[in-house]
Structures are given as structure tokens and as C-alpha cells.
């Protein structure tokens, strides 16, 4: 396999509040390859979005990237660690939009209501490419056509509130691809849309990915979307990546008890009729009341007293591209993370 285009290692992003520190991302590691899709999955509040924002260094205050590295391999082959860059530096800004495009969850509020779609698209184009206004406008129309917006010559002058939710999300995708980035981060791109529109948007992302050999990070809480789209999966729980692996391995041979529980909680047409849907017992702990040891242990069916609640497990390599963070596979250590 080729070298990863983006390699995240031990990323830590903390929020410093009055009441204490919230470790939103607490040691996330994964690799992203050109032309492939990495799905990041987990319950709400597990740090998926913050991870994505940490990569682009747009975490809002009081959040701060504290540790780790985000290695981006650029088009010219050189590698840069985004964590080491100043968040507001020119170099970092060129990465945003230029190298990495970002699609947000809410197409409704992610576009400005006071500017036309064309205005925002042309801004994104001209920010990263030296083109004239007229050229930028042509490119904007071209982008709108590419993402499947009918009558793009007219739509380019409309406002976001004049479009339907599905069209808006297409505009968002066009916007994120305006400067031809090689990586696309899609943060719950279909959550706010209805089911048919969801499928269309996912199809669109896949088509563009094939055309441009894009590396896609797809963040979702929907295992169904993962199964359909992803090549590799990273499962997150309370800011930690607890398991990574190829999509087949994750779905057919999940190793971490959390992944196993997540998969059991998907409704299936093949399930026994009238059987209860499995749920994960308990709920995500309060951010300030983080359990000691393995953060999943209070909800874990394989909880080993004296082991799981004292030390934190490390990542254990189970196959060349399959890792899990669990004492079932790791030898207990004296130290805690």
C-alpha cells in the first residue's frame, strides 16, 4: 500500500474550562490513504468532530491542541506537521481548503445567509488560486455543475436560504472542493438530511472521490454509512481511538468490546423478529467524571476488576492493519496514561 497522505499520531486536544479540563481528544492515532475512505465512528461527544477540527487547527477556544502530531504529505512530496504550525499562520491557512476540504454537518447554518453562493465559492477559489473574478465565477459554476446542482448559471447568484437542504449540502461539498484539495473531511455530512437525500450525497462524495483520487475522512455515528462508504474504520470512545482496522475486519471480527457493543446495537433485517435491540449499558460518563483506567470499563461486558479500572491499555497490533486498545489483548502495565 502507498504511503499515507495524512498520519495522525497521539493527538490530544483539551478544553480548559472553569470547572476543569475536558480531554476531548485523548491520544487519537490513524492513517489516511489517497483514494481511500477512513470512517471515524463513535457515540455523540466522543471527540470525532474535535479530532477533525484539530487536524485543521480550527478548534475553538477554550480548546487547544496539546500534543501529538498530524503529518500531512503534500503534493510535492514534502511532509509537514500541522500541530507544529501556528494556527493562524499563512502556511496553515493554505492547508485549510487548499489541501484539506471540510464539509460540515449542518448545511443550513454553515453557509452565510448574507452572501450569495457564488460569492462564497469565488472567495474560496480566489483564496487559493490566482484567477480573475470572471474565471473564478466560471469555475464556481463548473463546481456547482459537478456536484449536481441544476441550472448552476442561475443558482450561483442565489442565497443559501433559497435552496433545499440537499442542494445546500451539495453547495457545501462544492465549497470544500473549490481549491481542489486532496483530502476531504466530511463531518456527519448526511445527519441533517432525509434518507433519500443522504444516499444521493454519499453517492456524490464517492463519485468525486473516484474522479479525483480524494482521501476522505468520513465522520459519523451511523454504522450503516460506515459499512457502505469506508475502507478503513477508526472507532472512538471518550477521545481515544479504541480500535482501527479494515472495514471487513471491524464488521466481521470486531475485537474491542465497545466495537462489539456498537455493532450489536444496529437494527438488522436479519434479526430474530420481536427480539430486543441490544443497547450499550450505561451512558457516556460526564466529561469531568472520567473513569480511571480504561474509560470504557464501567460499561464493559468483559470488565476485569483490578485490571481495567487501574491502568490504561495500550494499542495492541492484532493484524498488520488491525489494532485495538484493550486489556483482553494487552498485558496489564503498572503505568497509567
Amino acid at each position: 500500500m502507498a504511503d499515507p497522505i495524512l498520519s495522525v499520531r497521539g493527538l490530544e486536544t483539551f478544553f480548559h474550562g472553569d470547572e476543569g479540563i475536558v480531554r476531548a481528544v485523548d491520544g487519537a492515532s490513524f492513517d489516511l490513504f489517497p483514494g481511500r475512505t477512513l470512517g471515524i465512528v463513535g457515540e455523540s461527544g466522543c471527540g470525532k468532530s474535535v479530532t477533525a477540527r484539530s487536524i485543521l487547527r480550527i478548534v475553538e477556544r477554550p480548546g487547544r491542541v496539546e500534543n501529538g502530531s498530524v503529518l500531512l504529505r503534500r503534493a510535492d512530496g514534502s511532509t509537514v506537521d500541522l500541530v507544529k504550525l501556528d494556527a493562524s499562520s499563512r502556511e496553515m491557512r493554505e492547508v485549510r481548503g487548499g489541501e484539506i476540504g471540510y464539509v460540515f454537518q449542518e448545511p443550513m447554518s454553515s453557509l452565510s445567509a448574507y452572501h450569495t453562493i457564488g460569492n462564497q465559492l469565488m472567495e474560496a477559489i480566489r483564496l487559493h488560486r490566482t484567477v480573475t473574478k470572471a474565471e473564478a465565477r466560471d469555475r464556481a459554476i463548473e463546481l456547482l455543475r459537478m456536484v449536481g446542482i441544476p441550472r448552476p448559471e442561475q443558482r450561483v447568484d442565489s442565497y443559501s436560504f433559497e435552496l433545499s437542504g440537499g442542494l445546500r449540502q451539495r453547495v457545501m461539498i462544492a465549497l470544500s472542493l473549490a481549491a481542489e484539495p486532496r483530502i476531504l473531511i466530511a463531518d456527519e455530512p448526511t445527519t441533517a438530511l432525509d434518507v433519500t437525500t443522504q444516499a444521493q450525497i454519499l453517492e456524490l462524495i464517492r463519485r468525486i472521490q473516484e474522479e479525483r483520487n480524494l482521501a476522505v475522512v468520513l465522520i459519523t455515528h451511523d454504522m450503516g454509512v460506515i459499512a457502505e462508504m469506508a475502507d478503513a474504520v477508526a472507532v472512538m470512545y471518550l477521545g481515544k481511538v479504541v480500535e482501527t482496522g479494515p472495514v471487513d475486519a471491524i464488521f466481521h471480527a470486531p475485537k474491542h468490546p465497545y466495537t462489539q457493543s456498537l455493532l450489536r446495537s444496529i437494527p438488522s433485517v436479519l434479526a430474530q423478529p420481536l427480539s430486543r435491540l441490544a443497547t450499550i449499558t450505561g451512558s457516556i460518563p460526564h466529561p469531568f467524571a472520567r473513569p480511571a483506567g480504561c474509560p470504557f470499563h464501567p460499561r464493559c461486558p468483559s470488565f476485569m476488576p483490578g485490571t481495567c479500572d487501574t491502568g490504561a491499555p495500550g494499542l495492541t497490533r492484532l493484524a498488520p492493519d488491525h489494532e485495538a486498545r484493550c486489556f483482553l489483548y494487552d498485558q496489564p502495565r503498572e503505568t497509567s496514561a
Binding site: I58, R96, G97, A179
Partner: peptide
């Protein structure tokens, strides 16, 4: 606090 601000930032605009 609105998402469109983050979107604009993610596009690479200066703050």
C-alpha cells in the same frame, strides 16, 4: 458561535 464562521475558517480565510 455559528457554524458558518467555522466553515469560513476551514476554507482558509485569515481570521
Amino acid at each position: 458561535r455559528r457554524p458558518y464562521v467555522t466553515t469560513a475558517r476551514a476554507r482558509g480565510l485569515p481570521e
